[in-house]
Amino acid sequence: MIQVKDLLVILISSSLVSNVVLSQFLGLCPFLGVSKKIDTAAGMGGAVIFVITLSSAVTGCIYHYLLVPLNMEYMQTIVFILVIAALVQFVEMFLKKYVDSLYKALGVYLPLITTNCAVLGVALTNVQKEYGILAGTVNGFATALGFTIAIIILAGIREKTQYNDFPESVKGMPMVLITAGLMAIAFCGFAGLN
């Protein structure tokens, strides 16, 4: 039986020590694309937390109760990507019909993360690290939390540096990447927590 202490270790290591964007480079597209304003970044972060937590729970169940008993572990990539895509579509329809407030808050971001590599990445990491369903879900939540932390910090920095006087060719994407690099150095400091 997995203990609370182990879950806490997963929570900290997945959200801070090996941050999904800054040390594993997953989910870079939304990280660079939707980080202009703190508000939109927070919305994206919320949607990512919601989808990744849910999808890692569902893919965990499918892996342990369907693929393992049938000896079909090699099918995991195909099954996971289809389940995730279907799940996101389903969640979107469900929210649209029944939970309007949540749909308004997260709705526009949901189609954007259907096949975001972080979602599939977490599902595959859970299998690779042999996490059970509960540990996998916690890992999913922690990873998404790490993504949200990173994207909100980046959006904050971008809002501050928006009108700074950079050289013409460094303006825009290069500056965002340098900022992300400096953040990655800062996050390297969390490695000491292990």
Partner: peptide, 9 residues
Amino acid sequence: APGAFFVLA
């Protein structure tokens, strides 16, 4: 990891 960002920048 940071080096990757710098090279891409």
